[in-house]
Design a protein around this nucleic acid. Structure first.
Lengths: 346, 346
DNA sequence: CTGAAAGCGCTAACAC
DNA sequence: GTGTTAGCGCTTTCAG
């Protein structure tokens, strides 16, 4: 049986209250007493029972992070960043995977497991504005990540999707490229980031007075390497001509890159490529992949801070907040400017 | 305030014991009573307080998974698989990152945070046999993953490292390749998988009666794409000749592949390449990467099962167990046999 | 089959 | 400064 606060108290010849005071850094404890307690803790190898503390205090120091899928590098890197930010605040993270399925996302929000955590960081994929009421009814502090559900009842932290896509698109248009594939619109019910990024793509074209050929807007069924590859393979076989690709995430871009190379298209000479997310591996592909860095660290830090503030606020109502992070266009080899003559549409 | 078991009891006009019986599927409850309780639970929206349950029962339904780093795709995929296996057993997973640092690994084993979990799945990187005593003193059920610390006081689940490396090496030797780089020995204190895989590399050479040139055994500082790339870049600049690479993980192999291609070496014609881990992305590189599938799902399922058994056994002593998973050599483009004439050492 | 009551280990009024 | 004591919400003997 693990030693309890009572064992420590007995050994140190004080009451349990004094032990508790020492443990919680209560200021008014005589140094000699404190030392006796500390010694007793050391000799017994006592560690507080966090479950008991959690029951008593209503806090467990645990938050959950709900993401679609860890195998997706973006979410793995997000989870990593969130865990570091959480640890800096003394919080541990329970990760739950939703698979991006709406029912599972809803279950995880309402679920009984949610009861042992102090708060939830939620990266929704399928949930939309229609679930406003479920979000509002979550019995725990909640901060939404990623998809921007405007005017929701909770905090949101996300990147400037539209502006990021606009900048990425402008980067290619500035090179004189004129037929840019927008890779990544989805047919799913949730508009989400895809619609916002497409809007940025359009805005950049409008600003450059370049018309958008609707045929260049290519849909996919999920943002994976495989779907990016399939979409580009299909586009090539349809005879679509293009000299650039704005992929809505890096996985799509990497899948596209592979197919383009197989088809004998040179990147970036024939087709320039830019993605979104700034995954680690974009630094290691051949060629290295240009991308939009969404400010992952800022997302994680702000989200954890918002959540912590809500947890600390207890039942006091905090107004919902929105935070949009700064993004950065990272130009690597896949979109580095090449000599003009090489950029004829493929 | 969230409703408690008392509120439910009051509304259903029964005692809290009866509510508890219903919640825990205690068999001898009259159907009518049970229904009344269920109705009361539904109207109040009651969910049990897991912290209280945890305090009382000594079980939280939480396990922790300690891994070096989620940004490493192998561990992200392992975490994904572990979480699915855990969920099937009704367990949630708290992930903690050790960074592969010994001090942090030790802290996580002894740490106070460990007190809220029922057990620990531990993927050690720096810990070795010298930490036998710490492992034995962990106050929770513990299952080790990955590195094979023989004769430890705990359960271990890992792949057949030596056999896997031997098979991978034999696969290249069988093609008539004779100068194979072993990429991934480490100078760190822990022998770990690197030594076992090197042993497999040697065994395959011995079995094929091919001498091993010590110059072909290439060390790295960590198993990343960057270190794999750097090591191969260095080998090429030293003028090392080789016609195959057995990389000790996929990240190393992918880094190596990039450098080889930059240097104008064709894969697999000039240099055949095989890795370890069967990462998702090995299916999407150009060329696709041959690899050794370590049986990740089996690792996760057995590890979670072992841990669950220890948790359920309570204080009853279970003897330490070892489980070695079945591996599989996955031949993809990077090591597909090519015409004999093309396989001259580079 | 159901109720009363104890207590898991801890924190925090409240006394002294 | 330190001790006493009452619960946090639940499970679980033990009666009935």
């Amino acid at each position: 049986m693990a030693p309890t606060i009572h064992d420590v108290a007995r050994l140190a010849e004080v009451s349990i209250k004094t032990v508790s005071n020492v443990l919680n850094d209560y200021p008014h404890v005589r140094p000699a007493t404190k030392q006796r307690v500390l010694d007793a803790i050391a000799t017994l190898g006592y560690t507080p029972n966090l479950t008991a503390r959690g029951l008593r205090s209503g806090r467990t120091g645990l938050i959950s992070l709900v993401i679609p899928d860890l195998r997706n590098a973006y979410f793995a890197e997000l989870a990593d960043t969130v865990m570091r930010a959480a640890e800096a605040q003394g919080l541990s993270v329970v990760i739950a995977q939703s698979g991006g399925e709406r029912e599972r996302e809803l279950d995880l929000l309402r679920g009984t497991r949610a009861r042992m955590v102090d708060g939830i960081l939620f990266s929704a994929l399928a949930l939309g504005e229609q679930d406003h009421d479920v979000l509002a009814a979550v019995p725990r502090p909640l901060v939404l990540l990623g998809e921007r559900v405007l005017h929701g009842p909770t905090d949101h932290v996300t990147m400037r999707n539209t502006e990021g896509a606009r900048a990425a698109t402008a980067h290619l248009l500035d090179q004189g490229r004129r037929r840019l594939v927008a890779l990544g619109t989805t047919t799913g019910p949730a508009p989400g980031s895809a619609a916002l990024r497409l809007e940025g793509y359009r805005q950049a074209h409008a600003a450059a007075a370049v018309p958008v050929d609707p045929a260049l807007v290519v849909g996919v069924d999920g943002w994976f390497r495989s779907t990016g590859a399939a979409a580009v393979r299909d586009a090539l076989s349809r005879g679509l001509t293009f000299d650039g690709v704005v992929a809505f995430n890096d996985a799509l871009a990497l899948g596209a890159m592979r197919v383009l190379q197989e088809a004998g298209r040179r990147v970036p000479e024939d087709v320039a490529l830019i993605g979104f997310d700034d995954l680690d591996e974009t630094r290691y592909s051949l060629p290295t992949l240009s991308t939009v860095d969404p400010g992952r660290q800022e997302i994680a830090e702000v989200a954890v801070r918002y959540l912590k503030e809500r947890i600390d606020a207890g039942s006091a109502e905090l107004p919902p907040r929105d935070h949009l992070t700064a993004f950065r266009v990272v130009v690597r080899e896949s979109s580095s400017p090449v000599v003009a003559g090489a950029t004829r549409p493929a």
